[in-house]
Structure formats: structure tokens, C-alpha cells
Simulated scan of single mutants.
Amino acid sequence: MTKPDGIILAGGLATRMGGGDKGLLPLGDGTLLSQVIDRLAPQVGAMALNANGDPSRFAELGLPVVPDSIDGFAGPLAGVLAGLDWAAAQGATHVVSVAADTPFFPRDLVDQLTQAAHDAHAPIALAATLDPERGPMRQPTFGLWDVSLRDDLRAAIGDGLRKVVQWTERHGAAQAVFAPDPFDPFFNVNTPQDLTRAQSLLESAP
């Protein structure tokens, strides 16, 4: 399979960060979003950003900005749907979604998701973190999605479904499990304290 396209989900409300665009907060030599872009770019073909409102605030990133097609705040599934529609328009068969506030996700995320979907003959594969006590903990905003599911997802959202896992379970989603090494690679920035920790992790990375 050729590289899937990539969609970065940046449509959250960032209430614990005081609102606004979390992705534009400074981190390292750039921003939270630029760190995510740098990590995703080698793993995918084309990339786009899912965000609502004035797209010009992301102009310097050089990515197409794809808004939700569902009215109101329908959560991450609306962002996945936007990514599916955008990828289908590009002629892609699959799209990988990642969260805009998770700067340390695995550098082999796409390879592992693709392998999991292939092995299970599944149209969806979700990432999971291996918790030593509770086992695999799903990370449902990090997934590989077959674009042929977009109309099914559109109908499900229209019927009021909002939880990612409720929909993916209908389609027998596969799972790619990642071990913490040395910390949870899906650690995400929700609060100012999380941003401080992310800066420390970035500075201590080899």
C-alpha cells in the first residue's frame, strides 16, 4: 500500500488551556503543531489540518485547512470525517489521523497501524498504549481509516454518535500497541503544566 494521507486533528476547544489554538503555543524551536507536523510528515503522503474558524491563522504552516462538515462541536469523529472526505478527494484510499496536541507520538505509527490493519483484514486500526497494569489503552484519535467508510461515519454522526470507539467497534477495528519508552508516546498537552512537561521531555530527548 502506498503511504496514506495524514490529517492533524486541531478542532478541539482547549478549555483546560484557556481556549484558543493549543497547537500554536510555543514548544522547542517552533510550536506544538510544528512538532506534530515534523513527526508526521515522513510517515504520510499529503497532509492537512482539521480546524474550524478562520484558516488564515495557520497560514505559515503551509497546509490545507479542512473544517468540520458537521454543524456544532461533534468531537473528534467530525475531524476524522473531514479527513476522510479530504483524502478521498485527493484520490487516497486511507488517511491517518493524529492529535495536534500530542508531540511525541511514535515515528513508526503509520507503519504499525498499516501492519495491524493488514494482519486483521480490517478497514480501521487504532493505536494503543501498553499499560503494565491495565493492558492496552486505546488512543482513538490516532488511527488508520479506509476512506470507503466516510458515508457510514457521516450517517452515524448524523444519528448522534460521538464516541470514536463505539463506531470503530462496529467495523472490527484492529489495534497497534505501543510500549511506553520511556514515557507514554501519546502524552498530550491539555494544561499549562503539560506544556512545561513537554518542553522538558523535548529538551531531554536524545
Score class of each variant (00 low, 15 high):
Asp152Leu: 13
Val147Gln: 14
Ala176Asp: 02
Arg138Tyr: 02
Ile8Val: 05
Ala116Phe: 09
Leu77Glu: 00
Ala46Val: 04
Phe178Val: 04
Ala120Gly: 10
Val66Ile: 15
Gly53His: 01
Pro64Ala: 01
Ser200Met: 11
Gln43Thr: 01
Ala99Arg: 10
Val189Thr: 13
Thr129Gly: 04
Ala59Glu: 14
Val177Thr: 03
Ala100Pro: 08
Pro180Cys: 09
Val165Asn: 12
Ala87Asn: 02
Met137His: 06
Leu61Ile: 09
Asp131Glu: 09
Leu77Tyr: 04
Arg57Lys: 15
Val95Tyr: 05
Val65Trp: 02
Ala88Gly: 10
Ala127His: 05
Asp146Tyr: 03
Pro4Gly: 00
Leu202His: 14
Ala117Met: 07
Phe73Thr: 01
Leu161Gly: 01
Gly72Ile: 06
Gly172Tyr: 05
Val98Asp: 08
Gly45Tyr: 02
Gln35His: 08
Ile7Ser: 06
Ala41Leu: 07
Pro64His: 02
Leu61Tyr: 13
Asp21Cys: 11
Ser69Val: 05
Ile7Glu: 01
His94Phe: 04
Met1Glu: 08
Asp71His: 12
Leu25Ile: 04
Leu144His: 05
His118Gln: 11
Asp71Asn: 04
Asp68Val: 00
Met1Leu: 12
Gly172Ala: 13
Asp194Arg: 12
Gly18Ser: 04
Ala205Cys: 05
Gly79Pro: 11
His121Ser: 11
Leu202Gly: 11
Pro4Gln: 07
Asp29Lys: 12
Ala59Trp: 00
Gln199Glu: 11
Glu169Gly: 07
Lys22Ala: 12
Asn190Trp: 14
Arg57Ile: 04
Leu201His: 14
Phe105Pro: 09
Asp194His: 15
Pro67Asn: 06
Thr191Ile: 13
Leu40Cys: 14
Asp111Trp: 12
Asp184Ala: 12
Phe105Ala: 06
Gly18Ala: 05
Met47Lys: 07
Ser148Cys: 09
Val189Phe: 14
Asp38His: 11
Gly158Phe: 06
Ile37Pro: 02
Val147Lys: 14
Val66Met: 02
Ala78Pro: 03
Gln175Glu: 15
Ile70Arg: 04
Gln43Pro: 10
Arg134Gly: 10
Asp131Phe: 10
Gly143Met: 13
Thr114His: 09
Ala48Arg: 03
Ser204Ile: 05
Gly172Ser: 09
Ala14Phe: 11
Thr168Asn: 09
Ala125Met: 07
Ser204Val: 01
Arg150Leu: 06
Leu149Arg: 15
Val110Phe: 07
Pro26Ile: 03
Val147Arg: 15
Val177Ile: 10
Ala51Asn: 00
